[in-house]
Simulated scan of single mutants.
Amino acid sequence: MVLRRFAAALVAVLALAGVQVVGAEPAAAAARILYYDASQAQEFVAVVNQGAQIWNSRVTNVQLLPVPAGRTPNIRVYADNGWPRTYTSSLGNGYWYMGREAVNDGYYPPRIAAHEFGHILGLPDRRTGLCADLMSGSSAPVSCTNPNPNATEIASVNRLFATSAAVPAREFVFSGF
């Protein structure tokens, strides 16, 4: 009861001071934007863009966009003759290689790109051998052409970025108890 009276008095004081006090629904957080630089991915630039688009069409809490001029990317993508691999510095930040060895062995390039972006988005390798699991990586058969994350992988990325999204400046409003 004392708490309610205090809240009512606080509202009255704030109103006298010209502060508008209203009940408000929590605003939905905007998707966190991660910028990637594929300029050093050589012949794989289009495949890298396709891998980003695959994630963008399936998750809501994060979006992968090509880095605009003058901005530092969160993610850098390279091409080399080795095996695909990713190095993360933190959630949503790092670099990865589109390795020609896997492509030459017959693995599907869009699946490789989506898989490596999956690591940047916080997903570990899961050696299930199932084509339906994007993060099964090379344990799935070479014939696997599924580049799409499954429902569990999508939910994991959305969960990881639900609380780490950059929150824009906004007005906080007292809504009572």
Rank of each mutant, 00 (worst) to 15 (best):
A28M: 10
L123Y: 04
V77L: 06
V157R: 06
N146T: 09
A69Q: 14
E171H: 07
P149Q: 02
P147S: 07
F172E: 13
V13G: 11
A140D: 06
L16C: 11
S138F: 15
V167G: 00
D125V: 02
E171I: 15
P110V: 04
T128A: 02
A165M: 01
L123Q: 09
N56T: 10
A27F: 01
A166D: 14
A7S: 13
Q63R: 13
I33F: 00
Y107I: 02
G23V: 12
A169I: 07
L134S: 03
V21M: 07
I112K: 06
L14A: 12
G70E: 09
F44I: 00
S90P: 08
L91S: 09
L134M: 07
L3F: 12
R32P: 00
P168E: 07
L16E: 12
R4G: 08
G137W: 03
I33S: 01
D133I: 05
R126F: 09
M1V: 10
S136L: 08
V173F: 08
L160R: 13
A69G: 07
W83Q: 12
M1D: 11
I154Q: 10
P168I: 02
I154K: 04
V67L: 08
V21E: 03
L16Y: 08
T145P: 04
S90Q: 13
P149W: 04
Y35D: 02
E153N: 01
A169G: 08
N148L: 13
L10S: 11
L160T: 01
A155N: 12
L14I: 00
Y108M: 06
A79W: 08
R159V: 00
L91Y: 03
V157L: 03
A165Q: 15
Q40K: 14
Y36F: 14
R71P: 00
V173L: 12
V77F: 05
A24I: 04
A12W: 12
I33M: 02
Y95K: 11
R32N: 13
A9S: 13
G18T: 02
R111Y: 10
T88A: 11
A169W: 09
F172C: 06
R126G: 00
A29L: 14
